[in-house]
């Protein structure tokens, strides 16, 4: 890990410790817990997009598989939540290998297409296999997870738990980037030919990162299931996968902190929009939640036009420019 990333991680941990001391409202803690799930998925997705140069439009489906593996194994087979999470990770790794191995051998963005198809299939399966998934009405009574025999019952406990997992996810990602394998990844993103000429097995690297990024999503899905204790296919449509990619792109895919920032901003955005709704109504505009998708689209478009490296990079540049102005 590099010094700046370590400092960022420590700052994040301090913020996480402090937030529940300020925000006592369970609703807002809940929003921040969902934010943590998205952050986790987006850290993994960033490794794939920013470092292996591939796009997955199926990460929402990996979240779904993680969630359903946890939901099904705990409720129908009575497995412990941790064992079910482990099983979900294994299942997702195998599925990611099945999707990734044939497509990542090819040059170009076949992975994006394959994962898009895969995401729709998983969503359809979640709706159709009623005996297994409960179909449209979903699975009820998913247990809460315990740590050392202590069940996480309050939102505050779950808040700490999910953000601790995000911190671990960041730590693992930074370790990876600054390692032999991570260098191989960054190298192939710079020039696949040059990387191959130095002995980097490009296909193997891409497949490994794809699987790792899917595992991030599986863990995120599993933690979601244990938090809401109820899952149905609703949140796992293809749009969710697109939203995850948008988060990474908006924040900046070439930097883990960028993806992290994007996930935080776009997870909190619906809250701002719903509070903005009241003001808009006063102004005579009837804002509907259906318009959210337009707002997301507009944000993505503006970012791509004016901050192609993402919000995080843009902020960094603004801060540096500001410092220069002050020095003058």
């Amino acid at each position: 890990m590099q010094g700046r990333d370590t400092a960022g991680l420590i700052a994040l941990i301090l913020a996480v410790v402090a937030i529940p001391l300020v925000i006592r409202n369970d609703y807002y803690l809940g929003v921040l817990i969902f934010t943590a799930f998205n952050c986790l998925t987006c850290i993994g997705l960033c490794l794939l997009m920013g470092y292996a140069g591939q796009i997955s439009l199926g990460h929402g489906a990996f979240v779904a598989i993680g969630a359903y593996a946890s939901g099904i194994l705990t409720t129908t087979l009575g497995w412990s939540p941790w064992a079910a999470m482990g099983a979900g990770i294994i299942i997702v790794s195998v599925v990611a290998a099945i999707v990734g191995v044939p497509t990542l051998r090819l040059k170009g963005h076949y992975l994006a297409m394959a994962t898009l198809g895969f995401a729709s299939i998983i969503h359809i399966l979640a709706v159709a296999t009623v005996d297994l998934t409960g179909g449209p009405s979903g699975l009820l009574n998913i247990p809460r997870i315990s740590i050392f025999g202590h069940q996480l019952n309050s939102d505050m406990q779950y808040f700490y738990f999910s953000w601790a997992v995000v911190a671990i996810g960041l730590y693992v990602a930074f370790n990876l980037i600054n390692s032999r394998v991570g260098r191989g990844l960054r190298a192939l993103h710079g020039s696949e030919e040059a990387a191959a000429s130095l002995g980097v097995n490009i296909t193997a690297h891409k497949i490994q990162v794809f699987i790792l990024s899917a595992v991030y999503a599986a863990i995120s899905g599993s933690m979601y299931a244990y938090y809401v204790n109820y899952i149905d296919p609703g949140p796992f449509g293809v749009m969710h996968s697109v939203l995850l990619v948008t988060m990474v792109a908006v924040g900046g895919m070439h930097n883990i902190w960028g993806a992290f920032t994007g996930a935080v901003l776009l997870s909190l955005l619906p809250e701002f929009l719903s509070s903005a709704t009241d003001y808009l109504q006063l102004m005579g505009i009837a804002y509907q939640p259906d318009y959210d998708i337009l707002v997301y689209g507009a944000i993505l478009l503006l970012i791509m036009l004016f901050l192609p490296e993402g919000v995080f990079d843009g902020l960094g540049k603004a801060v540096r420019a500001g410092r220069r102005m002050i020095r003058r």
């Binding site: 370790n175 990876l176 390692s179 032999r180 394998v181 260098r183 980097v200």
Partner: peptide, 20 residues
């Protein structure tokens, strides 16, 4: 780092140990 990539074949840390 460019040259370190050149040492890829002469080292062997895998993805698991790289990250964990």
């Amino acid at each position: 780092e460019n040259v370190m990539v050149g040492r890829h074949l002469r080292s062997k840390t895998g993805i698991f140990s790289s990250s964990c």
